[in-house]
Design a binder for these strands. Structure first.
Length: 272
DNA sequence: AGTTGCACCTGGCTGC
DNA sequence: TGCAGCCAGGTGCAAC
């Protein structure tokens, strides 16, 4: 999309999770896409003229890239046209389709200058794959917190972009209980414990591996070219309730509990 | 100020 | 086969 111009937008319903911005298709049509980026789990298209098209996939949203792209792929017709809510046609022949059965996703069109103070973005935390995240920062973020480690890691105002799967997987690899108080990863003086340093490294490792594997394909989810992600085959605990703990010599069993309304999968034997 | 729970939706799966 | 009940990748917001 970067460097291409939006030549047509078809918006097939008035809302997703929120109503579409006023005159959404009209304001996008004819605009040049200057850059494509991301912040936390928000996709950002920088548009000519200073606006940003912000898009979130929610739980079930996905983009498919098709159309006539010289030298690139051409995907089959959508298998789920009932939930194809928005189509973008670009000057380079690409046709981008947004599909979202549950409609928890949303799209915003905001001035670039105001984004940093927008209520959806002003409190967003640190990027887990950025240079800032290390044991020291984790300790600083978690110091004094009685909240469970699981809840703290899912808190997007602390670390931005960790979801339920990767939190469960990271905690298992780190051998840390999701129920442990987040504050126990900081010493009294705010310096990191060995656990904090370990966890910070593991978060980076898990995310990097997941990205390399093309993400996790649950149910019918696909990458933008229709191919499958493979990281789900390497899940050690997520959605593996009742299975033996994969840690060598552990002998425990993967359990499922509910924390702040979300499923947590973990091994009570080796995660302390 | 910090936390918790609800709400927003549809569809897939399980068990009766 | 039908149907009720439960569960799902997230997060904004109201209520404590």
């Amino acid at each position: 999309m970067a460097g291409a111009r939006i030549v047509a937008v078809e918006q097939r319903r008035p809302d997703l999770r929120f109503p579409f911005p006023e005159n959404f298709a009209g304001r996008l049509t004819g605009r040049l896409v200057e850059a494509v980026g991301r912040r936390a789990k928000y996709l950002m298209l920088d548009l000519e003229g200073g606006d940003v098209l912000v898009m979130h996939l929610g739980m079930s949203g996905s983009f498919r890239i098709g159309g006539d792209l010289p030298g690139l792929f051409h995907h089959d017709r959508s298998k789920d046209p009932a939930h194809d809510h928005v189509m973008f046609r670009l000057s380079n022949g690409a046709e981008i389709t947004y599909n979202d059965p549950r409609r928890f996703g949303f799209m915003l069109l905001e001035p670039r200058a105001g984004l940093a103070t927008h209520k959806f973005f002003r409190d967003i935390g640190v990027e887990p794959l950025g240079n800032e995240l290390d044991g020291s920062l984790l300790a600083k973020l978690f110091a004094g917190k009685a909240a469970p480690l699981k809840a703290a890691l899912l808190d997007q105002t602390l670390i931005a972009g960790l979801g339920n799967i990767y939190v469960c997987e990271s905690l298992h690899r780190a051998g840390l209980s999701p129920r442990r108080a987040a504050g126990t990863l900081a010493r009294k003086d705010g310096s990191p414990t060995a656990r904090a340093n370990l966890l910070a490294g593991i978060i980076r490792e898990v995310l990097t591996e997941a990205v390399t594997a093309g993400g996790s394909s649950l149910r019918d989810h696909r990458q933008a070219d229709g191919s499958l992600g493979y990281f789900q085959h390497t899940f050690r605990v997520y959605d593996r309730e009742g299975e033996p703990c994969p840690r060598a010599g552990c002998g425990g069993m993967v359990a499922r509990v509910v924390q702040s309304g979300r499923s947590t999968f973990f091994c009570g034997a080796c995660q302390r």
